[in-house]
Design a protein around this nucleic acid. Structure first.
Length: 874
RNA sequence: GGAGGCAUAGCUCAGUUGGUAGAGCACUUGCUUCACAUGCAAGGGGUCACAGGUUCGAGUCCUGUUGUCUCCACCA
């Protein structure tokens, strides 16, 4: 028989086991399977990224579900892959070019630059995949995908053309978020707001032909060059007289009208708002309503353009500073007050975004909103925890059109073509098209699509859509999507409306949301703080199983969790415990113990039936919790059972029979041990795949791997209520004896004779070896009555145990202790009696609860009478 | 401005349809018990933020208050 090393050493086997699983093809579902399917698509990590704790958590949860379902016999598929991550990847490669070669992408040109990015992708693209493998993820690697591979590109074109033809994609000049550093448009979702200290500058706008002026407050004076009106609310008495007047823009001298628009809030500020349609989303709308001219005053890099006059070429902030100084010098600056406000920043580079008007491509969201809300309302898609439904609904309801074009090079190039000859715009899936109108060659749109445009199609593009493939038929819609709450708006909602629009089906039925992994102090892990914990380092130090355990335990769905050395150490210790318990079982087994079935009920001792019955209950509870996505609760149940019930009690109880190796009892104990241990390994396998596999294959076992064995199932034939009760009596009495001995500082080496008075004489006679081994008993004698003086009396709800230890006993102390105990029991009896006397309780509480209280009362009464007898005998 | 989370043992957190509270770590005491000191045994420690309400019964459901975190919106 195989032997296990003395301590748990995950490095010795994790890689080997993973390689074996891959070789055997266990991760690939059987195409012939008729079983119900369970499918998941991985949230694709950035192709050039590295595994961080967020991934580790996300993918651990998915692997737990996938392995659980696979062991339950589902036809299970987990599709892996990576995302091209437009901006993120392009920034990285540009940075590398700058550092290594001192050049920009423009020096290389589009084609050469893209070659470089593909090189980069080839070089680093497999890194995160191999890191995922280290974690133990059971993805079907034969189906690995990339958001810019041929299939995904085809799906993207198909969707783009289809939406365009339906009128759901349009090109327009509208106000968008512009990142001056990335030099691209961003969607609303890609803008992060942060509170920044700023100022309100109050500026005087003179009224034409009058002496008066209008006071304007602004946080962004440099946009003044783009002002094309000043607005007041038509209902505002204080400003109504200004409507229709003409103002003169300070320093610029341009004339702008005062217009009336109820966008201006009465009572806020000066009641007069400068309107800059080209640089503010609200002003843009006001401008549209009033037909105002849009004057863009900045270049793509946020330097000022010719409309800024002498400030042309200055950076927007430099311009602001100079402008304020000039306004002050000319007497236009009325006052300055500090003002803190939210500033939009680019989610990739952190640069303050500039709202500006620009020609971009948009997805018209209107018609897709209602079906997306319906899918959730009807229950076709369920969020877990449920509260994220609201998060999703609110976002969906307030959705604006989605700006999908990016002025980047890395990404899906928009399949639109311009004919410079006749001005025709053609949107087509075809390459290098010729103008359908004039036959001249066309020029393809240079913009690429938002990364999230292709991610949104992921659940069906990876299945082969738009073709009616076998995978699509079998595995789409997918079952569960597992992701963090931080990308519900970026990704989850876009997959939902895309799935509904293009396949007519919601892409998944359940969305399991998890929180963020924070550091031990509760801070968000970030590069700039340098507080990130590297999952690979953790795997190296503690093993992948310990990492997975630490991530799966101790937190409820949707809540953030803290990660600490403490936590993963506890997980590693648990692995070590399981390892050593297995060593114990293994070293006791003999060559005859290849029978993997449980001994027959008649053969089993009370303790065997007890552990089997408890395991059976555990199985039921674990499955219930896993089915409800209570992944952490299920794990802690397995943990408690393994450590407390199996190791601390059952193994110890079994030892007394194992000594006599040849005996029938030893054989039964060995088979029960093996059966239970194997069951624990199976229950635990989804969480800790490596250690359970290593032990499983070391033990006598059926089948070549635990990962393709069947998950334990509740079996009513394995419920032994009577033996459970019997063993609980024994255990609680052993505990009580230990407790008294510890209180009295009796060393374990000092054995004692136990005299037991009990209504369950047989139980205690049979349990004699347990008291000898676990309660330092020399002998155990069951008697009808005992009045020995100078004995310590231990009273439980099933027995009075007397220990004659004359010299050690202080009679007065004993009396006091027992009186105290009596008082406690009396209080309990009183409490329960009052409860049972309460008619409301008896008539309204469930029968089982009332029955439970009655049983408790019974026990307390027994304890009380025993205590009183003992006191009388003292 | 709107929405939501959290508030339970010294610390970090569980607590699944309401039935007087649990774990890990830390702490105290005792153990070289032949699987494990990454261990074994015993123990101390909580008016479940506060105030009301529903109920026979509330950590759990409802309302409000306070503290704290997050998301969304963006009134210049």
């Amino acid at each position: 028989m195989k032997e296990l090393t003395k301590t748990y050493a995950p490095k010795e086997f994790e890689d080997r086991i993973y390689a074996t699983w891959c070789e055997k093809g266990y991760f690939t579902p059987d195409p012939a399977s008729k079983a119900p399917t369970f499918s998941i698509v991985i949230p694709p990590p950035n192709v050039t990224g590295q595994l961080h704790m967020g991934h580790a958590l996300d993918d651990t949860l998915q692997d737990i579900l996938v392995r659980y379902k696979r062991m339950q016999g589902f036809n299970t598929l987990w599709v892996p892959g990576t995302d091209h991550a437009g901006i993120a990847t392009q920034i990285k490669v540009e940075e590398q070019l700058r550092v290594n070669e001192g050049i920009t992408r423009y020096d290389l040109g589009r084609e050469k630059f893209l070659e470089r990015v593909w090189d980069w992708k080839r070089q680093y693209g497999s890194r995160i995949i191999s890191q995922l493998k280290k974690l133990g993820t059971s993805c079907d690697w034969t189906r690995e995908r990339f958001t810019m591979d041929e299939g995904c590109s085809r799906a993207v074109k198909e969707v783009f053309v289809s939406l365009y033809e339906k009128g759901l994609i349009y090109r327009g000049n509208r106000i968008i978020n512009w990142c001056p550093h990335c030099k691209t448009a961003l969607s609303d979702a890609e803008v992060e707001y942060e509170e920044q200290a700023g100022h309100f500058w109050h500026i005087r706008y003179p009224i034409k032909g009058e002496d008066g002026y209008v006071e304007i407050a602004t946080t962004r004076p440099e946009t003044m060059f783009g002002d094309t009106a000043v607005a007041v609310n038509p209902e505002d008495e204080k400003t109504r007289h200004l409507i229709g007047k003409t103002l003169i823009l300070p320093l610029v001298g341009r004339e702008i009208p005062v217009i009336a628009d109820d966008y201006v809030e009465i009572g806020f500020g000066t009641g007069c708002v400068k309107i800059t349609p080209a640089h503010d989303p609200n002003d843009f709308l006001v401008g549209q309503r009033h037909g105002l001219e849009q004057i863009k005053v900045m270049n793509d890099d946020a330097t000022m353009n010719r409309f800024a006059g002498k400030y042309e070429g200055m950076d927007r902030y430099a311009c602001r500073k100079a402008l304020i100084a000039d306004l002050e010098a000319e007497g236009y600056l009325l006052s300055t007050e500090p003002h803190s406000h939210n500033v939009g920043t680019c989610y990739r580079c952190g640069t303050t975004v500039e709202p500006l008007t620009s020609d971009q491509w948009f997805v018209k969201m209107g018609p897709m909103i209602e079906p997306s809300l319906d899918a959730v309302r009807s229950g076709a898609i369920r969020f877990i925890p449920e509260r994220f439904t609201r998060n999703y609904t609110v976002w969906m309801e307030n959705l604006h059109d989605w700006c999908i074009s990016r002025q980047l090079w890395w990404g899906h190039r928009i399949p639109a073509f311009y004919c410079d000859e006749c001005g025709e715009l053609t949107v087509t899936k075809e390459e290098s098209a010729v103008c359908p109108k004039c036959g001249k060659p066309m020029r393809q749109e240079s913009d690429v699509l938002d990364t999230w445009f292709s991610s949104a199609l992921w659940p069906f593009s990876v299945m082969g859509w738009p073709d009616e493939t076998e995978d699509l038929k079998k595995y789409y819609p997918t079952s569960t999507l597992v992701t963090g709450y931080d990308i519900i708006s970026f990704w989850v909602s876009r997959m939902i409306f895309s799935g509904l629009e293009h396949t007519g089906k919601a892409p998944f039925s359940t969305v399991l949301i998890h929180g963020l992994v924070r550091d031990a102090q509760g801070r968000k892990m970030s590069k700039s703080l340098g507080n990130g914990i590297d999952p690979l380092e953790m795997i190296d130090k503690y093993g992948a199983d310990a990492l997975r355990f630490a991530l799966a335990t101790g937190n409820a769905p949707g809540n953030d969790m803290r990660f600490s050395d403490e936590k993963i150490e506890a997980a590693r210790n648990f692995a070590n415990k399981l390892w050593n318990a297995s060593r114990f079982v293994l070293m006791n087994l003999t060559d005859d113990d290849m029978d993997l079935t449980l001994p027959r009920a008649e053969e089993m001792a009370a303790e065997d039936k007890w552990i089997v019955s408890r395991f059976n209950r555990l199985t039921r509870s674990v499955c219930e919790n896993l089915n409800n996505y209570e992944i952490g609760v299920a794990l802690s149940e397995i943990y408690d059972f393994t450590w407390d019930t199996f190791c601390d009690w059952y193994i110890e109880l079994a030892k007394s029979r194992l000594y006599d190796k040849e005996s029938e009892g030893a054989s039964v104990a060995r088979r029960t041990l093996l059966w239970c241990l194997t069951g624990i390994l199976k229950l635990l396998h989804p969480y800790m795949p490596f250690i359970t596999e290593e032990i499983f294959t070391a033990l006598p076992h059926e089948g070549e791997s635990i990962m393709i064995s069947f998950y334990p199932d509740y079996d009513e034939h394995l419920l032994f209520a009577r033996e459970e009760e019997e063993m609980e009596r024994v255990i609680s009495t052993i505990r009580a004896v230990r407790n008294r001995r510890a209180e009295m500082n009796v060393p374990p080496s000092r054995k004692a004779n136990l005299i037991v008075i009990t209504p369950y004489p047989e139980t205690f006679r049979r349990a004699t070896p347990f008291f000898e081994k676990l309660a330092s008993a020399e002998t155990l004698t069951v008697v009808d009555s005992y009045d020995g003086e100078g004995a310590v009396k231990i009273v439980t709800d099933s027995a009075t145990v007397a220990i004659p230890m004359g010299d050690l006993v202080d009679l007065e102390k004993e009396r006091a202790r027992m009186e105290a105990e009596r008082a406690k029991v009396l209080a309990e009896i009183d409490r329960i009696e009052r409860k049972l006397a309460n008619e409301g309780f008896v008539s309204k509480a469930p029968a089982a609860v009332v029955e439970g209280e009655r049983a408790k009362l019974e026990k307390y009464r027994l304890t009380l009478s025993q205590l009183e007898t003992a006191l009388a005998n003292l």
